[in-house]
């Protein structure tokens, strides 16, 4: 007991973080067919589930970058409990500056104060319903070639028929990983259930750094 008290002075008092970064399309086209509302509801539900998850093996942290007209850190990287409290619904407006979003993400990932080395491999989630309207190929290349981003788990969802599925597949950068294609607003909810499960499976696992691929097309077979 004496040693335990002494050791608390020089040891961290939190489980290792498991960061999740959401890259959320908030462009003007997201207003159509209730897409932005469905996205907001799905994210809120995911945050609530994460907040209820006990930090047994890993402490889930959530951050969100919104891109619509401009690029902004909509939610700085926070514990699930704090993120649930601070989350504000996205407002759809403007165009789709994806390239600037990917650059912003790379900067956040490389910030060792924000994402310390003891973190488990972060999960990156990209959601978009349209075509990027800035130069995105070079920022994506820089992101995927960066030492930290190359080790992340990545998931992507296209919303509607106008989405650039090819671009989203490039973000995943793996032939085994598939873009989840949402045709209706309710599919957005389904995708975030998949993200939620993929993250919580890792926090409960004896090996949280192992990322087991789950086929989004088999999502209906999964028991929650």
């Amino acid at each position: 007991m004496k040693n335990e008290i002494a050791m608390k002075e020089f040891t961290v008092d939190q489980a290792r973080p498991l960061p999740v970064f959401l890259l959320l399309d908030a462009s003007g086209s997201m207003i159509e067919n209730g897409k932005i509302d469905a996205l907001n509801r799905a994210v809120e539900e995911m945050l609530a589930t994460f907040a209820d998850e006990p930090d047994v093996r890993a402490m889930i942290q959530i951050g969100a970058i919104a891109f619509g007209g401009d690029v902004r850190v909509h939610l700085s990287l926070l514990t699930a409990e704090e993120a649930k409290k601070k989350w504000q619904p996205l407002v759809a407006q403007g165009n789709t500056p994806l390239g600037a979003t990917l650059t912003q993400l790379r900067i956040l990932l490389e910030d060792k104060k924000l994402v310390p080395s003891r973190s488990y491999r972060p999960t990156l989630v990209l959601v978009s319903d349209g075509q990027p309207n800035d130069e995105w190929q070079e920022p994506l290349k820089q992101l995927l070639e960066s030492a930290r981003a190359s080790k992340t788990a990545r998931m992507a969802m296209s919303i509607g028929a106008d989405a650039d599925v090819q671009m989203l597949q490039s973000f995943l950068n793996s032939p085994e990983s598939k873009v989840f294609q949402a045709h209706q607003a309710r599919d957005i909810h389904k995708f975030f259930k998949w993200v939620t499960m993929s993250v919580t499976v890792r926090t409960r696992s004896a090996t949280p750094d192992k990322i087991a691929p789950i086929d989004p097309l088999e999502i209906d077979e999964i028991r929650y």
Binding site: N3, M7, K8, V12, D13, Q14, A15
Partner: peptide
Amino acid sequence: TLRRALREWPTPGHL
């Protein structure tokens, strides 16, 4: 003594 102390490692969720 060191072995005993390491078994009481206080960081939550350590593996």
